[in-house]
Design a protein around this nucleic acid. Structure first.
Lengths: 326, 326
DNA sequence: CTGAAAGCGCTTACAG
DNA sequence: CTGAAAGCGCTTACAG
């Protein structure tokens, strides 16, 4: 089914068909012809060929979102936020990295061949320190490393992390263990560094081992199994995890080991996933509004596509949600 | 950066460039010229334009996966399975439906314009009763309605559901409530119908109200809040949820209402997500191997693309994982 | 083994 | 307001 067939059916030519299906026919095609064309389109079920259109125009209506693997439910939120904002002017397509990898600059180049209208990159790796020139706008998010680049949207962890450090101090903790994610993303590095600083300023200290786990419940369980005794021997009475999913593994393993939470070991983490309200015990967590992040990034991209002026991006607020685990 | 520029750089023509970058040059281009072309490609960072290539060939190397919204972590598993299987011969791109919707046939048509190599559809809605003719192979999964179509991969719920019914009977339950997902997908309808039948054959009965919730923790919490008292007045001593995420909401709300689990109300569901091992109490759930489903579907698609003979698809096994909640 | 040329289906100046 | 034509960047018969 091609524009030529539609043209034949409507007894006209492909130029007029193209103008009408793209809504660019005002003052160029008579209302009568336009109606005839629309009828033919409906009747034949014609859909514009994206490849041909993108080739002719230079780009299509695709917005590509590069995201790390989706096992962390946090990303579902982000994606929903992006989707909501893009609406149907643009077609959102996701590309997901291999398990445990972060989007890298090379993948960006690979997608240039698709001639997207724009690209969003969630939690890019360090190769994005400088964003490569592309024919389309690129918006990064959860990309604290690329601070110099105006097209990055990030969280403002400071207030929530301060609250968490204060809460730890208030509860009498002195030594705190940290369970990091094994993906070496900038956002994880920042969480850890900021927490270490905040905790230190309250006179506590973060165990400086470098315990990491896949951001999955089972990965975190294994890491906890291997480190729990050592953490406690080192004096840790609390463990902070870089993501809720990691904290779930800590909870499971502590339970198995007969370690009571929060009495023997307090636990807190980052994300505040919906299921964190129903773990045993309910999890204290720094809420990261994923959908808001996705929306903000998508709005920024759309503004660039519309060539509207761009405000400096505002970091998104985070808050500590206190529950029973700490 | 175009093939013409590469050709100029390597002092040859676009035909040879095309043959070499596509690995079709054996016996057509001298090894010497091929090496010169490869050097030029590397030097200039040339990437084949997907739109132009797809237009010329008739299709590209894109595999499109249509999936329902990703808030259920189950889908992350499925996607990882697909990704692992496709490798880098094909480029996986996801398209996600709006919140709470299922992929429909119309979206399939829309993606024809991208000229994909093939399409996978996860949990399609009822418009897929007959798969429309497409220029590319289509494989459905989690699509029990399309039984007649050979290209659908499904779970065999029977053994696990029988175990669940037997366990309910063994524990002395007589009346069981059901919390369904609000998405009217065939796979949810089947779960309910099969459970009703299995339970009846053990002399129990399923409350025949039609309680549904968004497949999110908060949606399920709200639905439980509205129905918990009624369920218990109706004699229900157990509630089965169509997905773990729904069960999490039941747990949370029961806890809030002072209903003990499993003493006052037993709970079980479908999915067996990793986090179901760490809820309070740990959740009894029918394990649906998401990654295996994704792999099987992707393998089938690749077989079609390679024009290899297709075996009749075997439904994937499911087992009941018993934990404290029932 | 090498290269000029047609054609994929569209969009968009351009001429009528 | 309508239509013929060039061109987007590639692939692939085809001729040399």
């Amino acid at each position: 089914m091609t524009a030529a067939m539609v043209a034949a059916h409507a007894e006209t030519n492909v130029s007029s068909v193209s103008l009408v299906v793209n809504g660019k026919h005002r003052g160029r095609v008579s209302e009568q012809l336009a109606a005839r064309i629309r009828d033919a389109v409906d009747e034949l079920g014609y859909v514009v060929d994206h490849s041909a259109s993108a080739l002719a125009r230079g780009h299509g209506d695709l917005v590509i979102l590069l995201a790390p693997d989706l096992s962390n439910p946090f990303f579902a939120e982000v994606i929903a936020g992006v989707q909501d904002t893009l609406g149907d002017r643009y077609q959102l397509m996701l590309s997901v990295t291999e398990r445990g990898e972060q989007p890298c600059v090379d993948s960006l180049r690979r997608f240039n061949g698709l001639r997207p209208a724009g690209v969003l990159v969630d939690a890019p790796d360090e190769t994005f320190a400088a964003v490569p020139a592309a024919e389309h706008p690129v918006v990064l998010f959860d990309a604290p490393d690329s601070a110099a680049d105006l097209n990055a949207l990030n969280y403002d962890y400071a207030p929530a992390i301060r609250s968490l450090a204060a809460l730890l101090a208030e509860r009498g903790h002195r030594t705190v263990a940290y369970l990091d994610g094994s993906t070496r993303s900038a956002t994880f590095a920042l969480r850890r560094a900021m927490l270490a600083e905040a905790v230190t300023s309250h006179g506590l200290h973060l165990l400086d081992d470098d315990v990491r786990a896949d951001v999955t419940v089972s990965g975190a369980s294994a890491a906890t199994r291997a480190n729990l005794a050592r953490w406690r021997e080192g004096g840790a009475t609390a463990v902070i995890a870089a993501a809720d999913t990691l904290a779930y593994g800590v909870l499971a393993e502590a339970h198995r080991a007969g370690v009571r939470i929060p009495e023997d070991l307090a636990v807190a983490s980052f994300d505040d996933l919906p299921s964190s309200a129903v773990t045993a015990p309910a999890l204290t967590s720094i809420a990261l509004p994923g959908a808001a992040l996705g929306r903000a990034a998508a709005e920024r991209l759309v503004a660039m596509l519309d060539e509207r002026p761009l405000p400096t991006p505002t970091p998104l607020e985070t808050v500590l949600v206190r529950r029973a685990s700490l």
